[in-house]
């Protein structure tokens, strides 16, 4: 009789196997297996227009700071009073802060002729940094689908890294009505982001003197 054929060894192995199966079952929420309904994934997309290299100053676009925990892949829903929840089965492709940052990096090259730097430009010395704080980015359901809306408000701060001072500051509010479905909501966010990027480009052009 070998050791593996010993009854005690078999009992121990069976117990370990059962424990492993129980542990795997408990890890279900951590390792998501889905709830049966597919999630629809959306993005904030900007299509670059220029093909040549911008000639303006270098500006480092920092990762936006998202208030009230808005920085994940979920879309927040503003209910009555102070209640918040999430939009079911609708997700961004990645964290919304990354989407907004990449959108600004691409769009400011077109709108303000800036050589913008993102995460990959960390080791490049830039005279200015653009800080963004997203104060609101939520779906606000109305009494009827026609009354649905989104909020989208961002605070922009241009910082001179040479003097360590604030060169300019502006708050953009781009809330609007949207169709009460996932596609309409995401289209509303894309339209709001497009307007915000264009206005930010004009604002940066007006204040770019601090970055030269």
């Amino acid at each position: 009789m070998t050791k593996r054929d010993h009854p005690s060894f078999r009992a121990l192995a069976a117990g370990l196997a059962l424990t492993l199966i129980a542990a795997l079952a408990a890890c279900g929420p951590l390792i998501s297996f889905g709830d049966g309904e597919p999630e629809t994934v959306y993005t904030l997309h900007y299509e670059p227009k220029r093909t040549d290299e911008p000639t303006g100053p270098l500006v480092f676009v920092a990762e936006p700071s998202m208030v009230e925990g808005l920085g994940g892949r979920v879309i927040a829903v503003r209910l009555s009073d102070f209640e918040r929840t999430l939009l079911k089965n609708v997700r961004w492709t990645t964290a919304s802060s990354d989407l907004i940052r990449e959108y600004l990096i691409l769009s400011l090259r077109d709108h303000a002729n800036l050589r913008t730097l993102g995460e990959t430009g960390l080791d490049v010395s830039a005279k200015c940094r653009l800080n963004t704080t997203v104060q609101a980015m939520e779906f606000v359901p109305g009494a009827t689908p026609e009354a649905d809306a989104i909020t989208f408000r961002a605070e922009m701060t241009l910082v001179s890294q040479v003097t360590g001072t604030q060169a300019a500051h502006m708050v953009f509010d781009k809330g609007r009505r949207v169709e009460g479905n996932a596609r309409g909501i995401v289209a509303g966010f894309n339209a709001a982001m497009s307007e915000l990027a264009a206005e930010t480009g004009r604002w940066m052009t007006a204040n770019i003197g601090a970055c030269r």
Binding site: C27, G28, P29, L30, L79, K88, V90, F139, A182
Partner: peptide
């Protein structure tokens, strides 16, 4: 943190919160 919370989400079809 490990197993997830009991959070409701807003369903656009029913236009109300439902358990996830």
């Amino acid at each position: 943190v490990i197993f997830g919370g009991e959070q409701e989400e807003y369903d656009l079809k029913t236009r109300k919160k439902e358990p996830n």
